[in-house]
Simulated scan of single mutants.
Amino acid sequence: MKIMNVEFVISAVRPDQYPEDALPEFALAGRSNVGKSSLINKMIMRKGLARTSAQPGKTQQLNYYRVNGRVYLVDFPGYGYAKVSKVQRQQFGTMIETFLGDRKPLRMVLLIVDIRHAPSKDDILMYDWLKHYEIPVCVVTTKADKIPKSQWPKHVKMIKQELGFHPEDRHVLFSSETGLGREELWDLINEVIEETNEEQEETEEVSIE
């Protein structure tokens, strides 16, 4: 996908701060330091727009990035970082649950998992939560460049087994270093947007009739 325009729009913590233009939204969830910001920077081909940090837990709001004026990537706070206070963890949890529970423009959650490691308890909880509330999810196994290509299938199989991965869900292998998976992920996002547009058009036609 050719990136024509990208803008950081807002760091939101409350629903009244969310954008109101109803563009489709794709949220990125994952543990602290799993590489969500690096993934966003690779997706939009902009170095440093999504701020990366060696210090986990830096993202503490919902960061909105508008791409080509047609879609938002929404970066969630990372979860599972021990040095974040209990109060902050509760605040993050409430903020994310509020967003996921009633955000109509949300089209899919990209659950980011480090391919080198088994999913954390928080990863499994997030996946189970998304399935329970029937929120579309794509598991993105990132940092693929950190292990030999020959080990990819074994690690992906392990991650899917630990998550209890559902066959109808999507998976993308990704590397922020090499760009592996970038076009596949954009193709998926565009596919979901087109499917949603078609469903909305059908609903409108039925309403008119």
Score class of each variant (00 low, 15 high):
residue 10 I to Y: 13
residue 93 G to I: 08
residue 89 R to T: 09
residue 64 Y to F: 14
residue 71 V to R: 09
residue 191 E to R: 12
residue 35 G to H: 13
residue 118 A to K: 10
residue 139 V to F: 05
residue 142 T to C: 12
residue 91 Q to C: 05
residue 129 W to E: 09
residue 177 E to Q: 10
residue 93 G to N: 15
residue 58 K to F: 09
residue 133 Y to K: 14
residue 179 G to E: 08
residue 71 V to W: 05
residue 82 A to Y: 05
residue 112 I to K: 07
residue 174 F to I: 08
residue 134 E to L: 07
residue 35 G to L: 11
residue 65 Y to M: 01
residue 173 L to Y: 01
residue 34 V to P: 10
residue 190 N to Q: 06
residue 184 E to F: 03
residue 18 Y to W: 15
residue 149 K to Q: 12
residue 74 V to I: 02
residue 182 R to M: 11
residue 52 T to Q: 07
residue 191 E to N: 00
residue 63 N to P: 05
residue 209 E to C: 10
residue 124 I to L: 06
residue 18 Y to K: 05
residue 175 S to A: 09
residue 3 I to M: 10
residue 147 I to C: 04
residue 107 R to P: 15
residue 128 D to E: 15
residue 18 Y to S: 02
residue 153 P to S: 11
residue 61 Q to N: 13
residue 70 R to H: 05
residue 192 V to S: 04
residue 162 E to M: 01
residue 11 S to I: 01
residue 13 V to W: 09
residue 175 S to K: 11
residue 170 R to T: 11
residue 135 I to A: 03
residue 65 Y to E: 00
residue 78 G to D: 10
residue 89 R to G: 07
residue 199 E to K: 14
residue 9 V to F: 06
residue 109 V to F: 11
residue 207 S to L: 15
residue 97 E to F: 02
residue 78 G to Q: 00
residue 24 P to C: 05
residue 161 Q to G: 11
residue 146 K to D: 08
residue 146 K to V: 07
